[in-house]
Amino acid sequence: MSDRSRASDSAISTWFLRLYVLVVFAFVFAPIIASFVFSFNSDRFPTIPLGSFTTKWYETIFADTDVWDAFARSLTVAAITAVISTTIGFCTAYTDFRYRFRGKGFYLGLALLPPTVPLVIMGLAMLALLSRINMSGQVYSIVISHVVLCSPFAMAICRLRLSQMDPSLEAAAWNLGASQWQAMKTVIIPFCKPAIIAALCLTAAVSFDEFAVAWFVSGLNKTIPVMILEILQGNVDPQINAIGSFVFAISISLVVVAQILVMTRDDKGRKS
């Protein structure tokens, strides 16, 4: 093959690959964009061409007290879940960072495995157990299950941050007479602060979006995703796009904030 044909060959393949990447991203974001666009569409059934612009679906959901109740419940569950699972995740990450002990592999497996269990199975197991001890169908039943699912993500984020820390910093604090708690408070937690906030945001997003386990254990205390799930089982209802756009806006904001915090570099106390 001559050099020129080889060069044009690679130019074609580069253009093809660029186009391909764009198609993949279009596929990934098409449903989010469509949901947003059709939430303002006047037709009951989604068809092309679009009907006229309307805000009536938003007006319907704003007037619906059930939606408000579910929304408030979702926010409450997400906030409490975020605080508990970030605390647990941080403690687990610190344990992994600081200590070696027998059975550590098992310990870490336990800490990281829950998200790999299918949600339906997790939902069934939680429902079976919680209803046996009369703890199902409550708002706290959802929180209990969501913490199981969310703390591994918090653990991963905090662990990543700790691995960027110079481990001698903590030892230095100890040598200067700080107790473990003081070193934790003045060295470790300040260094991990961006990761902790990121973990709070990400776990809140996971909890806010979780529909399967919540569907099993929530009973009559529906959260927004459970409400969506139950509306979907009925007829086509454009309200879904309006509620969905809200859910997207909230969870995308949380995930974006979390990612910015994880990615932002600040070099204080970093390993050289």
């Binding site: 974001f29 098409a30 989010i32 949901s35 969506i228 969905g244 997207f248 969870s251």
Partner: peptide, 22 residues
């Protein structure tokens, strides 16, 4: 990476359902 991580944590239920529009 930033853009691909967003949908992974964003309401899969609504995203799947939106495909009905297409």
């Amino acid at each position: 990476m930033f853009l691909l991580i967003i949908p992974f944590f964003t309401s899969y239920l609504v995203r799947a359902y939106s495909w009905q529009i297409f």
